[in-house]
Amino acid sequence: MEKNSNKKVKIYSTPLCSYCMKVKLFLHKHNIDYDEYDVSKNIELAEEMIKISGQTGVPVLDIEGKIIIGYNKDEIKMALGL
């Protein structure tokens, strides 16, 4: 299947967070590749997420510099040009 976007997508998540799972399912559905950063395994990544998003809730998406907090479908679509 052809990729829907070539943008680099990072997702900061924790293993048991349902909204993280929803974001990932959404990206799968739209055939978007992403790199997942499990902040529960790495304190530095957790600090990085808090720094770039200014808050402490997962998930956080970084779509080529555009930071999206939570499972916000409209913002994700806009950032990816879907």
């Binding site: 924790t14 967070c17 349902s18 529960s40 304190i43 957790a46 808050q55 402490t56 809730g57 997962v58």
Partner: peptide, 18 residues
């Protein structure tokens, strides 16, 4: 809210390491 305060320990607990 989400600046240290959370209602979902399962989701956000790992962000409070140390």
């Amino acid at each position: 809210k989400n600046k240290g305060l959370t209602y979902c320990a399962t989701c956000d607990a790992p962000l409070f390491a140390g």
